[in-house]
Design a protein around this nucleic acid. Sequence first.
DNA 1: ATTTAATATCGTAATATTGCAATATAATAA
DNA 2: TTATTATATTGCAATATTACGATATTAAAT
Lengths: 107, 107
Amino acid sequence: MGITKTQMFTEKQNDLAQFFKVLGHPARVAILQYISNQNACICNDLVEEIGLAQATISQHLKELKSIGLLNGEVEGKSMCYCINVERWTVIQNQLNLFFNTTKSNCC
Amino acid sequence: MGITKTQMFTEKQNDLAQFFKVLGHPARVAILQYISNQNACICNDLVEEIGLAQATISQHLKELKSIGLLNGEVEGKSMCYCINVERWTVIQNQLNLFFNTTKSNCC
DNA sequence: ATTTAATATCGTAATATTGCAATATAATAA
DNA sequence: TTATTATATTGCAATATTACGATATTAAAT
């Protein structure tokens, strides 16, 4: 079908999966790494840097924004996208909580 | 298109995204949590526990195996699926490395 | 006001994912 | 050998994702 049966899972499970999912595309990984390595963070740079079309980059940025990882500020006719460090840490902690509490062996 | 342009990104970026992607489904999160909470880890339990069809569960298990998170051992006519703790830790460390090295602010 | 530049949104095509019924496979039980 | 049970695989339908061209939109520059 292609439709995930969200209602079968807890909100925590869905949220966690959503974080993982948004990070689960190499373009979005690359975008985050690029923004992190820059002091400036103008979207148009990303188009040249990543090599995908402007519309595609814009779409990926939107998904990163959807879980709060990126802040976007208008700066003249450009956009300044930055990592939301507070949110970043919260998500990192949630993922680590999952990893640490889901690690037992049996055989 | 629906096709990710893998060749545009580094192997590390693709691997990292692949880990995130596999974990990016609530059923797979739930499967890992369930296996972790059990001492026994028989697949058929999962079908009742998670509430998806047997074929669907089997597919999700295959994806978790594909990045080495699960070991599957034949045990009579059942399968014993367990978390590969060593691999688990390696992946957790890789994700944390990404989080820790990709966190700078600019505005 | 018009042009230019940067980004977002829309529409669409191609491919991927999810889910399940049906079927295959493999091991034990009868 | 023939069931029975557990899991995997196949085939398919429905939905989601990825990507991009075309087209808004918005702000600055002329």
